[in-house]
Simulated scan of single mutants.
Amino acid sequence: MGYLILGSGGLGTALAHELARRGEEWLLAGRQLPRGLDPACYFPLQEVDSLGFDALFTLYEQARLPNVVINTIGLLHDLNHLPERRVEEVDPAWLCESLQVNAWPHLALGACLSRLMAPDARLWLCSVSDLAGSIGDAASQGVPGRYSYRMSKAALSMGSCLLAREWAQRFPGAGVITVHPGPMDTPLQQPFHHELDTASLQAPAQVASRLLNLIETLTPAHSGQFLDLAGRPLPW
C-alpha cells in the first residue's frame, strides 16, 4: 500500500521509520526531515495552510493517490501559550490557532483528496485525536481546563463524522476515522509529565506499529468512528 503521513513530530517520524522497515511505499510531509529517513520520501510542509496542502497534492495530480493518509498534526502548547487552567485565560487568537492546527487539516485533506478521487476509490483517511476532546467521556476530564485544545479536538470529531457521511455517498469505498493513541512520550507532553502517570507513556515507535496494524484491519463499517489502538469505539 502507499501511505501519506502528515506531521514530522514524534509519531509521524515513528510511522515513517516503521513503514520503511516494513518495505512499504510512503511519503512524509512535515516541517523537517527526521534523521535516518530517505530525503526522496520527504515533502517540506512548513505551514499548516491552504497553500502548503495544495502544493503537496500537486504531487498526486499525475500519480496515483495513497491508499492510506495519516494526519498526526496537533498542537497543545507553544512558546507563548500553555494550556488554559481557567476560563479567564482563554485567548481568542490562540483558540483560533488551535482550531487551525488540530481540526482544519483533517478537512483540508478531505477536500484535496475529494478533488482527485475517483468514485470507486479505495482509501482511508485517519487523523490522530485525543479522548480529552470527548464530551461523552467523563474520565477524560481529569486534567482541568485546556479549553482550546479540548474544543479543537471536539471540532475534529464533528468534522470527521460529517466527512465520513459525505464520503459514504460520494466515495463509498473510502473511509474516515479518528484514533486516540493514548499518552505518548513526545515533546507535546514533556512539559506536563508531572501531571501524567509516566509508566503509562508509550514510545512513539510502539504506537506507530499498533496504529498501522489497526489500519490494516479496517472495514467500511469502521468509517465515521473514533477508535482506540485496539479498534474499540470511543465516545464522542
Rank of each mutant, 00 (worst) to 15 (best):
Y42S: 05
G142H: 10
G7M: 06
P181I: 09
M158I: 08
L162P: 02
G142K: 08
G110A: 04
M184N: 10
P233K: 10
N80C: 09
G142I: 06
P187I: 09
V90A: 15
T178W: 13
G136T: 15
A199S: 07
F192W: 02
P204M: 07
G133C: 08
R22A: 06
A203P: 03
L75I: 08
L227G: 09
G2P: 14
C41R: 12
L214V: 01
Q100T: 00
P183C: 09
G133I: 11
R86L: 12
S50D: 15
P39E: 07
W124G: 11
P34L: 11
F171W: 00
T217P: 10
L131S: 14
V101W: 12
P92D: 12
L116A: 09
C161P: 10
D78V: 04
V128D: 03
G23R: 08
P39T: 07
L45G: 05
A20N: 08
L6K: 04
G12H: 02
S98C: 09
S148T: 04
H193M: 11
S134M: 12
L6Q: 04
W104A: 11
A29I: 00
A111Y: 11
A221C: 03
Q202D: 08
L27N: 03
R85C: 09
M1C: 00
A55E: 06
L76I: 12
A132M: 14
L196Q: 06
H180E: 00
Q32Y: 13
D78C: 03
L162N: 12
S134R: 02
C126S: 09
R35W: 14
L214W: 05
A230D: 11
C112G: 07
A103N: 08
P44H: 03
T217C: 10
W94F: 15
E25D: 09
G145Q: 00
P39F: 09
L45Q: 01
A14M: 02
V48A: 12
M184H: 15
M184S: 13
P191W: 02
D91S: 12
L15R: 01
V69E: 04
Q46H: 10
T186D: 04
E61W: 06
H193Y: 08
S114I: 01
P144R: 03
P183D: 05
A118S: 14
L218T: 06
D197T: 00
P44K: 07
L65W: 00
A155Y: 04
R21N: 10
R85H: 13
L99V: 08
N80H: 11
G30E: 02
S98F: 06
R115C: 12
H180L: 04
P44L: 01
M151P: 07
T186N: 03
C96Y: 15
P220D: 00
A29L: 01
Y60D: 09
S134V: 13
T178D: 10
W104V: 00
Q190A: 14
Q169F: 08
A55W: 05
